[in-house]
Computed example of a mutant assay.
Amino acid sequence: MMDRLKNKVALVTGAGQGIGEAIARAFASEGAKVVVAERNEATGAKVAEEIGGLFVRTDVTVAADVAGAVQAAQTLGTVDILVNNAGANVFYRPHEMPRAEWARCMALDLEACWAMAEAVLPGMRAQKRGAIVNIASVHGFKIIPHTFPYPVAKHGLIGLTRSLGVEYAPEGVRVNAIAPGYIDTEIARDYWAEFDDPAAERARAEAMHPARRIGSPEEVAMTAVFLASDEAPFINAETIVIDGGRSALYHD
């Protein structure tokens, strides 16, 4: 174990699986006191137990849950790190989208990130330090047809990152984002499972990338560790793309 986050209190949303789980585990291995804020009690409690963290059942779209998660984290000390990871793919052709799905996507993938940030900012500002890491997406830069309105929310999250980063930099609070591309998570595997040949669809996704593979949650997690640590004091209001170089390609 290293000590890059020693004794820092880190609140990670959606940490019961996938990228959030990998971040929670990486933070714990670096000495942080991790709060697993997760809606799924079974997965969240399991991760928290295995890393010696604190589990708080949290639906980030519910104001009382947001307040409860932050209050629970504050029993360990002032929140030093917030990772806004909870979210979901909401994909439609725009004209076929039920209006309620717009509201669901914005509430979960954008508004909840501000709600969590708003809740931890008073403590961070008071102690003159803090790091917020938002898990955005390559959808925040590139548009894939039939994925509406998810890219709208992720464009907004990148805007939120930049706005908060500039606003609170004078008070010692840094706000950055990570934009993953194809990452080997349960969400990706569920998506491939919708096809007649999931293995072939995964192979197609891997072949799209210069490295002929997709990323792992752990590769995203270590970037989050860096951004949350004292090793990145002058990185602020920035978004780091983790897509293996896919977005640099002009065409396949």
Rank of each mutant, 00 (worst) to 15 (best):
I144S: 13
N134V: 02
F148S: 15
G165K: 02
V138Y: 05
H155I: 10
P145K: 15
L164F: 09
A153T: 07
A119C: 10
F141Q: 09
A126V: 04
S163D: 12
L157Y: 01
A136W: 06
L164V: 07
V138R: 07
L164W: 07
T161V: 03
Y168S: 00
G130M: 01
T161F: 02
A131I: 05
V166Q: 11
I158L: 12
A136Y: 07
Y150R: 07
L164D: 07
E118A: 15
V166L: 15
S163H: 14
V138F: 05
L121K: 03
G156N: 04
L157E: 01
R129S: 14
I132W: 12
G156I: 07
L121C: 03
K128V: 07
Y150V: 06
L121D: 00
A131K: 10
I132R: 05
R125E: 13
R129P: 00
I158D: 00
L157W: 00
K142Q: 13
Y168A: 01
P149E: 13
G165D: 02
P122L: 13
N134D: 04
V138C: 07
G165T: 03
V166G: 06
G123A: 12
V120N: 02
P145M: 13
I143G: 12
G165M: 05
P122R: 11
T147M: 10
A136K: 05
R129V: 00
R125T: 14
K142C: 05
P145R: 15
K128Y: 08
H155F: 15
K128T: 11
G123S: 10
N134L: 01
Y150W: 08
E167C: 08
F148N: 13
H146M: 14
K128S: 13
V133H: 02
V133Y: 02
T161K: 00
T161L: 02
T161Q: 02
E118V: 01
